[in-house]
Simulated assay, not measured.
Amino acid sequence: MIIRSGLIRKRDDVDFTHFSEHWRHVHGPLALQVAAMRAYRQNHILARRPSPQAARLHRVDGISQLWFDDIEAMRVAMDSAEQRACVEDLHTFLDGVTIVVQQQGDTRQHGNTSHLPAKFVYLLGGPDAALKFLDEELFALLAALWKSMALRTNLVINEEHSADPAVRSGRQVVDAVLEVWLPEGANDNAMQSALADTTDINVIGAFQVDELTLKDLKR
């Protein structure tokens, strides 16, 4: 299973409230029509966390997640009339989208994970070995701090895709997307400390998000 994420930047002449409402209620339903898409989530930015390498990428105002069976299923879907309608809508509220295609990682879970409303997303750069080690290290750290938590590291597998030639995109500098789910009211201070101490990993973006599931993954 692969995840096609869009690191999206809103137009500067569109205020954040309008951007968020349009993404949820106009663009979201359009995206749901795309063929072969197995699941769809939007991650709306609630807070920006420290990210020392943020200058390497454009401002990120939201992160979309579209699941497909594989690269070929995604390619066919992105060539559909439904996707073309999505691209036309992008111009009405976005300034650019950088596409990051990942292999879905294994979700590590600790305790009762049925209700973990605090979600954090980290855009990371670094070698695969260091990213996999970080996944294990963070899981052990967070499991010791919280009765319930979950995390997943999705390694980037393809850097050749864009939303459309007519849509501006940023540099492909992300090697993995780390997702962390924690109990209500939790903060990511421990994760920030651990990331700061990891010399092989660059934090390109770090966000607390409101995760909106428009289509859930069914196996």
Rank of each mutant, 00 (worst) to 15 (best):
H44E: 14
Q65M: 10
L7S: 02
L57I: 15
R59D: 15
H22F: 12
M74G: 01
Q33A: 09
I3N: 03
A54D: 15
N43T: 07
T17W: 08
A36N: 12
F68K: 00
S20F: 00
R4C: 02
A36W: 04
H44R: 08
H58P: 14
A36D: 15
S5V: 04
A77I: 04
L66G: 04
L32T: 04
S20T: 14
P29H: 06
R59H: 15
R24N: 12
D79F: 04
R11A: 05
L66F: 07
Q33W: 03
V34A: 02
L30T: 04
R11Q: 13
M37Q: 08
H22M: 08
I3E: 01
H44V: 11
S5P: 03
Q42V: 11
M74A: 08
D70G: 08
R41K: 13
R59A: 15
A55L: 14
M74P: 00
A36Y: 10
D15M: 09
A36H: 12
L46V: 13
P29C: 06
R4W: 03
M78K: 00
I45C: 11
F68G: 01
D61W: 10
F16N: 09
A73N: 06
S5N: 13
D12N: 13
S5I: 04
H58Y: 07
R11I: 03
A55Y: 14
M74W: 03
D79W: 04
Y40R: 03
P52V: 12
R75L: 06
L7H: 04
I45A: 13
A55P: 08
R48L: 15
W23P: 00
W67Y: 13
S5A: 10
G6P: 01
F68E: 01
L57P: 01
W67S: 02
W67T: 04
M37L: 09
A73F: 02
I71V: 13
H27N: 07
R4A: 04
P29S: 05
E21L: 08
I8M: 14
A54Y: 10
V76D: 05
D70I: 05
R41Q: 15
R56D: 12
R9H: 06
P50H: 12
L32R: 06
